[in-house]
Amino acid sequence: MTSTTNETHWITQAQKGDKQAFRYLVDAYYPFVFNLAFRYLGNQADAEDVVQEACVKWWRHFAQFKHQAKLSTWLYALTLRTCMDYTKTASYKKRKRQQPETHAMQIASTETPAKMLEANELAERFKKAAETLSEKQKTVFVLKDLQDFTTEETMQISGQTEEQIKSNLFHARKQVSMYMKMMYQTPEL
């Protein structure tokens, strides 16, 4: 069996209520979903919480998944919605107010320690810049720029039209770039 037919088999089994098959799917998709949540929220603890919540929703609503769409796209959309809901919760806002600097991004997969440091610093600045964006701008920025999805995929995941994506992307990039410039001029920010 090829990997695609294998996956279809696991999906069908999981949709019938087979938890072992579902566990297999969670294991396979966890890194991708985690990456998206981490890039959207900017810290590991929140990303783990959101992924757990998204997976419970996935299990409960898996019957709604039709095989016409890709499972990854469906899952990314589910995770994104969970991230958006999570950022509106009081506990997230409280945690962000109390410990704004304790959950910095940690990039470990770059070539040299110097580059790793540089990448970590860059990630931290981008994270701060992304916090100044509106929800729709942040969504497009994370999907298009940080996750490197195509416009077609971004449309499917975010539910925005091509025109909206273009417009939000333009404003997001402009604002992030402006914020980055400002931070490099005043490093204490």
């Binding site: 966890y30 890194p31 981490f38 590991q44 757990q52 991004m105 990630a123 940080l146």
Partner: peptide, 18 residues
């Protein structure tokens, strides 16, 4: 952005998380 795209944020304990 390309530098950030290359970086993967791998979860520490995937087995435990699953």
């Amino acid at each position: 952005i390309e530098t950030l795209q290359r970086a993967e944020f791998t979860p520490g304990h995937q087995a435990q998380a699953v």
